[in-house]
Design a protein around this nucleic acid. Structure first.
Lengths: 350, 350
DNA sequence: TTGCCATTTGTAAGCGCTTACATCGCAAAT
DNA sequence: ATTTGCGATGTAAGCGCTTACAAATGGCAA
């Protein structure tokens, strides 16, 4: 009897093999492809595995199999309900398929994002979830060179070589604007998240501009304020926009959080929503339903997007299938914050 | 046959060593403990690393070093702003220290949580973040046996052998209740998250009961409804509680989300908050500030908690330091939803 | 000069697992 | 009876890295 490793380490594949009276290959096979092992051997090995409370060593497995069963998600921030929702769904699907999720947030900073992506790859992620398409081409090359499957979420436009699960931000925003224009709004202002590194935000603005143009209005007349993602910022932006004379009859917001801030600001200014000014959001998170008036907004299927993204990624990795583009439908949710422009709009000034 | 193994042609440590004219050990050392290598060699090796765009293989490194630099977080759900906040902070500190975060959510299900914990360990997590203390002792044994450092967040009571970064849920809820009682409230009802597997929720209820008793009231008289974590559920619970006669003058809620639902229900019932009925929350998430009336609630330093949790874990792993218990302070945030019981409380019945 | 020590670098033994390939039985086919 | 084929199992070669230990080098006190 050879003495084993001096310290009481965890049982290894070899320990199991010895105890079960088979080779390590057989143990490995019963764990990874049970159908290649005969019924009898399989149950004997499994019993031993349980008896020894064996659990495969992650590093060794990753090294030998060149697979970690781990997927990375790089998102702007978890503190944004839309990403939290999507991530939760992404993670659920991963777990249901025996995989695990790595998460990193970039705070909307391209440099940090790039760093995080490289870290994910270095950590052996088998695939990566990214938000939006806009980023340095170099990082795409890096990913391609490393053969790391990628799925882009939150946008569906302009993606060809990669998988994506998104929706048409421009079209959705355009439709909401068109609806508002149909209600009689002509003086429309927009509060957007910073568009510099955010293709979704940019697309939404573009959609509204396009709707304006289609209705014969000049898109350049639309006051546009860009700001950070927070209720307070939405509030401040709204106050500033309300200084214009004549005032806008509608303030569209790039997301529900900014819209919530706008609604609050309106209250503070003594303006009634929607009688004095209409406000719209985008995303349809719970927040949109609890404020008063509740927000008319665009519903985005965040959970579905996250879930499908995981499936797309898994398919690429496990079945080595080709990238696939999926576009999801959005729809306008009509609540109380949008109404035809009211009569009090100008009289109440000052 | 050509093995289509994806990441096959990446440079290895050995490639770098050869190109730099040194041994693999030297390259490894330059990467992991640069101060053990002479200036000249170090720069030469680093240059080669950059030239070859070398990146260490994660599996090999984990196997040889028995470390992954990866930490797991097992939380109830990311769709809850309080956990999202905490996680974001946790992750940031990890990244700042060169580590990566694995995330799994349990949906408040102990069986799933246990599974996720085991998965994290199997995935080679160097440490794990857990929410609350209540779970099968067996899983704690498992963690101890595997020598996996753990940090418990969200509660600070009753933890001794493990690190924790939390606050006193019972005390905080008790103080808020005491304040309400001081304002004159006697008929207090409570809407709680399910307490069965949630020690935080249970502690909050206990705190209120304790305050009641201290004020000479019978804690058993307090109507208590347990429900799921959602605005809608808070709404339904509130409606049900309002059927009582005489009606409660204050409905305390175990968290802000339930409170937001309660406020909405009050509006629907034509009740003014706080004139007809007061409502309080717990957590102080943004939601508390955007609804009207804004919620009087307990502020919990979620981000700080997440950040400190990461530091506690890192300290245990890197410095092999002993578990440490940290208790954070909470404080009551006074807004508009709590006021002395009003005169209309009973008259409006019927 | 010699000896000793500190510093720098090299050698090589694993770490625990997967998997290509070899082997072995045994039933079906010839 | 011999051959063939195939499923089940074993053998052993790595996978790419870390690190204990050995070796080489050079400075300096004796």
């Amino acid at each position: 009897m050879e003495p084993k490793s001096p310290k009481s380490d965890l049982p290894t594949l070899e320990d199991v093999a010895r105890a079960a009276g088979v080779s390590t290959a057989t143990v490995s096979r019963t764990l990874n492809s049970p159908d290649q092992v005969s019924e009898g051997t399989r149950s004997r090995v499994m019993a031993t595995v349980r008896a020894l409370r064996y659990s495969p060593n992650f590093g060794a497995r990753a090294l030998a199999a060149k697979r970690t069963n781990t997927y990375g998600a790089v998102i702007p921030t978890m503190e944004n309900a839309i990403f939290a929702r999507g991530l939760e769904a992404f993670q659920k699907v991963l777990v249901a398929n025996g995989a695990t999720m790595l998460v990193a947030s970039s705070s909307y900073d391209p440099a940090i994002e790039e760093d995080q992506i490289r870290t994910m790859v270095a950590r052996g992620a088998d695939g990566i979830l990214l938000i939006g398409t806009q980023r340095d081409p170099e990082i795409y090359d890096f990913l391609k060179e490393r053969h790391i499957p990628v799925v882009i979420a939150w946008t569906g436009t302009g993606v060809t070589a990669l998988s994506c699960v998104g929706f048409d931000n421009e079209d959705a925003a355009g439709k909401l604007a068109a609806k508002a224009i149909g209600l009689g709004h002509r003086r429309i202002a927009f509060i957007s998240a910073y568009t510099r590194n955010n293709d979704r935000a940019r697309d939404r603005v573009a959609g509204v501009r396009h709707a304006l143009a289609t209705a014969g209005l000049d898109p350049c007349d639309m006051p546009l304020l860009e700001t950070k993602y927070s209720i307070q910022c939405g509030r401040d932006a709204f106050v500033e926009l309300m200084h214009a004379r004549p005032r806008p009859t509608l303030v569209m917001c790039g997301n529900d959080v900014l819209a919530a801030g706008a609604v609050r600001a309106a209250h503070e200014l003594g303006l009634d929503v929607p009688a004095d000014v209409s406000i719209t959001g985008f995303d349809d998170i719970e927040l949109a339903t609890v404020i008063s008036p509740a927000l008319t907004t665009v519903h985005v299927p965040h959970r579905k997007m996250g879930g499908l993204a995981a499936e797309a990624l898994l398919a690429q990795v496990r079945d080595n299938s080709a990238p696939k583009q999926t576009t999801l439908e959005t729809h306008i949710v009509v609540r109380q914050s949008l109404a035809p422009p009211g009569s009090r709009t100008n009289e109440m000034a000052d």
